[in-house]
Every structure is written in C-alpha cells, then in structure tokens.
C-alpha cells in the first residue's frame, strides 16, 4: 500500500472531504500541482477548477472555487468557498449559468461595467469548471 496523506476540504458550509488518500491534484494559482505523502509544508492559493484525488481503488473529482490550501504534517487542508463532487453537480443549472454569463459578457456595456464583467467572468469560470467535473 502506498503511503497516504490526509486530505481535508473545508468550505463555509462545513467539511466536505476528510480522508486518507494517495495523491491530490489541485488547481494552484500558477498551475495545477500534485501532492503526495510527506510533502514539505506549503501554502498555496487555489483558483476555480478541478481537484482530484486517488485512493487505493477509487478516483474522485471535485469542483472547487477560489481559496487556498495548506500542507503540513502529512496533511493537506483546502479552504475553499465551495466544493462539489462531480456526481452532485446539476449539469442543466451549470449550463444555464454558463449561457447567462456568456450573454452578460457579450453585452458588456452597463454603468457598473468593470464589476459586472469581473462577476460574469467568475460565474462563467465556475460554470465551466462544474461542467468539466460533471463529465469526469
């Protein structure tokens, strides 16, 4: 059996994952990274994307939105605003969100322009990440 690392995913709504895993792949700010057992202490920001982890026999994928993660004492903790398993994602809703965000981006011009664009972009990213995870 491969050596394992403890994975915890915590959101404001509660803890989502808390188990021992073989490897964690996470969307870091500067690109995706993988963490194995006994990783050196690390602190990294997390962007919207896909978090995957593998156990002995299974592989799971989660959609995570912005936050950060901390590795210390053979434990990796993700603090993210939201985290959803692929199987729990409502694909239709994500599709609608994607279309809505795209429409808003296409229109663009409103008085609160910058704010709205930033928001729509974030919404679009979230929707795309959800769709991607749902297909895994």
């Amino acid at each position: 059996m491969a050596e394992q690392i403890r994975l915890e995913v915590v959101t404001p709504g509660g803890s989502v994952v808390d188990e021992d895993v073989n490897i964690v792949n996470a969307p870091g700010y500067g690109g995706d990274f993988g963490v194995l057992a006994h990783h050196a202490p690390m602190l990294s920001t997390i962007k919207i994307g896909t978090l995957t982890y593998e156990k002995e026999k299974s592989r799971e994928a989660l959609m995570v939105s912005g936050g950060f993660c901390e590795v210390s004492n053979n434990k990796i903790t993700f603090l993210v605003e939201s985290a959803e398993f692929g199987r729990n994602i409502d694909v239709e809703r994500a599709m609608r969100a994607k279309e809505r965000a795209e429409k808003r981006l296409a229109q663009g011009k409103s008085h609160d322009e910058q704010l709205n664009i930033a928001r729509a972009e974030a919404a679009l990213q979230r929707a795309l990440a959800r769709l991607k995870v749902a297909k895994l």
Partner: peptide, 26 residues
C-alpha cells in the same frame, strides 16, 4: 514555529493579497 519553513506558492505577498479580502468575508 513552523511559519519559516513554508513553501509559498506563488509568493508570501501574493497569498496575503488573496487572503486578506477573504478574511474580511469571513
């Protein structure tokens, strides 16, 4: 004690820039 040994990704300052607004949310 541990804080000195951390690897920061991207950098300590940039992480702070992300964390501080998050802290306000919290």
């Amino acid at each position: 004690k541990q804080s000195g040994d951390y690897i920061y990704e991207p950098s300590e300052e940039e992480i702070m820039d992300v964390l501080q607004p998050l802290y306000l949310n919290v």
